[in-house]
């Protein structure tokens, strides 16, 4: 792993810590307060705040996860150089698309 990727992975990890805490709090609140799916969607749809929150979360996860998968592949597979970079980008874009789709479903 190179310095830039190392640093980017640590920065995204640090930024995700408060987001994960907030995400868990939201899950616990939503499940314990008896909110129905329709009620949850009623609060999230059209919300710029929730869109920004989960949009940022998805972006950070995509970057962090893709770099991590690149590291695992570098250690455990024969992939090297450009192939590792390609794997990282493909995996990151896939994560981002899946996450963006989920965010769109809840916010859009």
């Amino acid at each position: 792993m190179t310095l830039r990727l190392y640093l980017l992975q640590r920065v995204t990890a640090a930024l995700m810590v408060p987001l994960i805490a907030a995400h868990l709090a939201v899950i616990i609140y939503a499940s314990h307060s008896g909110l129905s799916a329709a009620e949850i969607l009623g609060r999230t749809r059209g919300s710029v705040g929730w869109a920004a929150f989960y949009g940022l979360f998805v972006l950070l996860v995509s970057v962090h996860g893709a770099i991590g998968v690149r590291s695992v592949a570098a250690d455990w597979t024969p992939l090297r150089g450009r192939a590792l970079g390609a794997l990282m980008w493909v995996f990151g874009l896939l994560l981002f698309l899946l996450g963006a789709r989920a965010v769109h479903a809840v916010i859009g």
Binding site: M1, T2, L3, L5, Y6, A74, D75
Partner: peptide
């Protein structure tokens, strides 16, 4: 030591 295969490859 910051290049590919350098210190950041340590687990």
């Amino acid at each position: 030591v910051a290049a590919n295969g350098g210190c950041h490859s340590c687990h």
